Simulated assay, not measured.
Amino acid sequence: MENLIYQHFSDINLNDPFFDGLKADYSEFSDWFTKKANAQDSAYVLYNINRCIEGFMYLKFEKEEVQDVSPALPYGLHLKIGTFKFESVGTRRGERFIKKMFDLAFENHADNIYVTVFSKHDYLMNLFQRYGFVIHGSKNTPNGIENVLTKDMYSTKTDMLENYPMVSSNSRKYLLSIYPTYHTRMLPDSILNNETHDIIQDVSHTNSIHKIYLCAAYGVQGLKRGDSLIIYRTSDRPGQARHRSVITSLCVVEEVRSINEFASLTDFLKYTSAYSVFTKDELVYFYNSKKYPNIIKFTYNAALKKRVTRGQLIDEGCILDERINLLEVNHSNYLKMLQLGNVNERFIID
């Protein structure tokens, strides 16, 4: 069972020790929680293998002028992060929650996202700011002064991470093939209908917005930061690629490195292990054998709502009937692929 679930407050254990810190920071937390339970509201909850809570996020849409912060937020559709806390334990859980909130904001055409955070929670401040949140102002509460951070869902910034999850239309575009063995472990929101949620684990390469993939595809060393990638999941059955190879995800290249750049195995493992789907033993083997010399680091920006098969791509003229490892595609075919995949057009910016 997937451990990050959307659950009614009434089904969440308020007495779990996880909530002790929130109760200490917010004197009204228990009363607020009970009101949400009575209203049948829900939140994202992360459970560990022992069913203890290790992450919690409550999101709420507000279509109004937000006047309890200074300066006020103008009238619009705001996605408020009402409560957000997680135990990091080194697995990039915060990034997985960040991606969930962005997905929801896009799905509902929110104008912005905002959150209030005490300065002492610097890890949260840094996490939000990394992905384009800025300090808008402050909020005075009985519990103290909180920072108000906002993310404008329409503004464009120069840095690709601050723009996340939006993708520049001015970039070069490619199809990148990934074997089924690694695909869903690395891109959990792009799970196929015939796959089981049991394979999605609470580990860094699953939670993270950032991914590292090793391959031997020709041309990978020519990729540049900001290039767009449409992930092409290869067939899991020989001879059935037309119906079982599909495009699933929209990603953006952060950087490309060669396995030969690393002076030692230790340096290589330090760079790859946290964001890679490969086990340590596999990485050691790859380093020693140089079997997969190209290392791609990329961001996971969006899952295609509709899986588009290889056959559809050929019939629509997006690709030729050829083997795909890394294939550059033109702008019009790129947009057609995203349209076929029912990707929200707001993900693409000039």
Rank of each mutant, 00 (worst) to 15 (best):
Y232M: 12
I209A: 07
N143P: 11
S177N: 08
I231S: 06
N126P: 02
R237T: 14
K120L: 11
F118R: 14
I247T: 10
L127K: 07
Q129L: 11
R237D: 14
S190R: 04
S228M: 07
S245G: 01
H210S: 13
E261K: 00
K120A: 11
R185G: 07
L127S: 06
N140C: 13
Y131L: 04
R130L: 02
S235T: 06
R233S: 09
N207E: 02
V148Q: 08
I259D: 00
Y179H: 12
F128K: 10
Y218M: 14
D236T: 14
H183M: 10
T181G: 15
M125N: 10
E146P: 14
G132F: 01
G219H: 06
H210V: 15
S249L: 15
R244K: 09
R237S: 15
K151D: 01
N140P: 10
T156Q: 13
D198W: 08
Y154C: 12
S245Q: 01
H243Y: 11
I145Y: 06
T184E: 02
G137Q: 04
I247N: 06
S245L: 00
G144A: 08
S204M: 01
I199E: 02
S177V: 10
T234H: 05
G222K: 01
E254C: 07
P165W: 03
G132W: 00
S171I: 02
I200Y: 02
Y218Q: 12
N143G: 11
K120F: 07
D122P: 13
S155M: 09
G239H: 06
Y179A: 15
T206L: 01
L250F: 07
T150R: 12
P238T: 15
R225M: 02
I231Q: 05
I135T: 09
E162Y: 15
G239C: 12
L214E: 05
T156I: 13
A216W: 12
I209K: 04
V246N: 11
S171P: 07
I212V: 14
S155H: 04
M125P: 11
N207A: 05
T184C: 04
E146K: 10
S119F: 11
K211C: 02
V167C: 05
S208F: 01
E146S: 14
R242F: 13
R172P: 04
H136Y: 02
Y218T: 15
T234G: 07
N163E: 00
Y179T: 15
S168D: 03
N126I: 08
K120H: 09
T141Y: 00
Q240N: 12
M186F: 01
H183C: 08
V246R: 12
K157E: 07
D152M: 06
P142F: 06
Y154Q: 11
Q240F: 13
L124Y: 03
E254A: 03
N194V: 13
V148N: 08
M153D: 07
N194T: 13
D159T: 04
S228V: 08
Y174S: 05
Y123V: 03
V148A: 10
D236V: 10
Y174F: 09
K173R: 10
L192G: 09
L176T: 09
S249F: 08
M160W: 03
Q221T: 14
I247H: 08
N147K: 15
Y218L: 13
S228E: 03
K173Q: 09
Y174C: 05
V167H: 02
S245K: 02
T141A: 06
V134M: 11
I199Y: 01
S258R: 00
L176Q: 07
L161I: 14
V134P: 10
N147T: 13
Q201L: 15
